[in-house]
Design a binder for these strands. Structure first.
Lengths: 352, 352
DNA sequence: TTGTACGCGTTATCAT
DNA sequence: ATGATAACGCGTACAA
């Protein structure tokens, strides 16, 4: 364990506002005015001050500023697991918006364990974050809020939170159903459908939309429950294959990867024999074989919206919940065109 | 644009150290001593103070503390792109170590553009980070360092940096070569080999190890250059298929996904006709079809090591560079066992 | 063991 | 347009 109390060379102290004031022959108040574009300063003295500052390579200390302003310009961020690609995309959206406002995100990970969530939140509060954002919170409104504005939630699981960004999961289910019911190239409609879900509200809502759309066509469907893992998708797929099957909607892309694998092992062709639609449009979707058609969550935009909410919260503005609409991304697992052309959307994920 | 100057209700001020001192009938110095385990305080007064603090729900303001200590307890983090799974894993490692020391990571993304890297660094410095970590820096030693200890690099591209964590890429190339040269189940050794690389030092080192190991067996190899994208892997694969081919080493998992796709399209069986080894063991590797054998970067450990370096740097300790060794992860793309059993390693990626 | 008093670097108010 | 000065909340020599 590193002993953080050790601090040999206390970082050569840079010149402060006082030094600049002395150098420029003015008071510290005027220097402050210049660096905050506040009040009025004559062009002449402004230049003298800027020159002196450059000479001493001075810049205002955020430590001092934060103290007197009572703000840290930090937004806490709690993520279940940073390496989940979908979350990564959300974080990008958050980061972009915050950076544009000279603010930064303080990262905290609850490591997929609900019980640590409050502890992580407390740790972030220890850094005096002005507000916070929680992705897929398990705790909900119970998070601590000392000296901060509040937590914005990106999460479908806990309804009723005042500041939240969510996806219209039911609409996602409808989109999936419509895609699977499109006439196949052979002209024969699909009739043996299935849903692979998972525990939780999120999956239930997706299923509700899926079921509603099927009902319109007078169709029923088989139902299996997994846990969003690939393994559970594989098991679900093997189970479904004991019965007739020509279309599957899976509540997550990772789990859909497992379903696809089950189909490969049983020798079924996708999409001609069985069509598959996933959910999320995580970056693995276009890498699967065949490329997975899926319901896209606009993760980047959802992150950006949450960040904007946090900023509004800090500014004391009114904030209302937002619901985003999913979009269906058609790829090879539902589209039987033999040699699909490459579009910029596919394949060109980020390098590495 | 939100106007951050708006700040209606300045967050009801919590009781400060003064209030606690008054309530407990002691001086603020004694309160401070209690909360910092410094000096000596009688058991009696300590309890009185703790009680008063609890009563007023007081906790020390990090803003004030940071100012007087001249530290922010923040570590800046610059990542090319947060949604890259491999980076996500590194960040997890960083976060875990920092959190264990009451510190936090301030997130910055250079959005895959080298020119923004210095700007992002400057932004993090604006928050007075104590030190920083840069993943795959393009800028290297040129990053600004005002009032901070320095930047730890996780990066192979820029040698000579004093504080760095890197992977033994050459060893990775050797591992890949050995795996591809293993006798096949049919007993006939592979002789038509290829390397799919990319620009940059990293790929060159991997190739060097690969080539050296092949040379030991008296073998040569064909060579194609991509850019780590899936698309470039597909193109590379199609190009290689114009010649005899029974083994490919690809410098990145994403690009390997493209190579696999090219092999599918041409009807080759993997691994019986062509064996494939990727690089990184990014979380996509076990999701590809077939599951991809690959050279694993210990990303989590590399992140953790970098964080520890940053902590040591802050503590003023001596820091020396570290090199990590890769490990070969054998999966279906080199191992022709017909129905591979599921190991905890495979399939069970994080949920979602 | 406890208290006094100063400093940390800045912003903001009120004079001038 | 500019200056003097009081906060901001805390840590810490130094004194008691």
């Amino acid at each position: 364990m590193t002993d953080l109390t050790v601090q040999p060379k206390p970082l050569s102290r840079t010149g402060g506002i006082r030094d600049v004031a002395r150098q420029a022959g003015v008071s510290i108040a005027t220097v402050s005015r210049v660096f905050n574009d506040a009040g009025t300063v004559s062009q002449d003295t402004r230049e003298r001050i800027m020159h002196a500052a450059a000479l001493l390579s001075y810049e205002p200390s955020s430590l001092g500023r934060n103290l007197v302003r009572g703000r840290s310009y930090l937004v806490g961020l709690i993520v279940p697991n940073i390496s989940v690609p979908l979350y990564g995309t959300m974080i990008q959206g958050i980061e972009d918006v915050l950076a544009r406002h000279q603010m930064s995100a303080l990262l905290g990970s609850s490591r997929d364990r609900p019980d640590t969530e409050a502890r992580v939140a407390q740790g972030l509060l220890g850094h005096a974050v002005d507000a916070g954002i929680v992705i897929n919170s398990q705790v909900g409104a119970a998070l601590p809020v000392q000296r901060m504005r509040g937590w914005v939630h990106i999460s479908p699981e806990i309804p009723g939170l005042p500041w939240r960004v969510e996806l219209d999961n039911e609409e996602g289910g409808r989109l999936a159903a419509r895609e699977l019911l499109r006439n196949t190239s052979s002209g024969s409609p699909r009739t043996a459908l299935a849903y692979v879900g998972a525990p939780g509200r999120e999956s239930l809502e997706r299923e509700r939309g899926f079921a509603a759309e099927l009902a319109l066509a007078g169709l029923n469907y088989r139902r299996v429950v997994g846990d969003y893992s690939e393994q559970s998708g594989l098991e679900a797929g093997l189970e479904l294959l004991q019965f007739p099957l020509d279309a599957v909607f899976v509540a997550g892309d990772l789990m859909a990867a497992g379903v696809l694998r089950a189909l490969h092992r049983s020798g079924r062709n996708v999409p001609t024999q069985v069509a598959v639609v996933g959910f999320d449009d995580s970056l693995i979707a276009p890498l699967l074989y065949p490329r997975l058609s899926t319901v896209r969550q606009p993760a980047y935009q959802m992150g950006a919206a949450a960040a904007q909410m946090a900023l509004d919260l800090i500014a004391g503005l009114a904030v209302t919940p937002m619901t985003f609409s999913p979009v269906l991304v058609r790829r090879e697992s539902t589209d039987p065109s033999p040699e699909p052309p490459f579009t910029p959307d596919e394949g060109r994920s980020s390098s590495r």
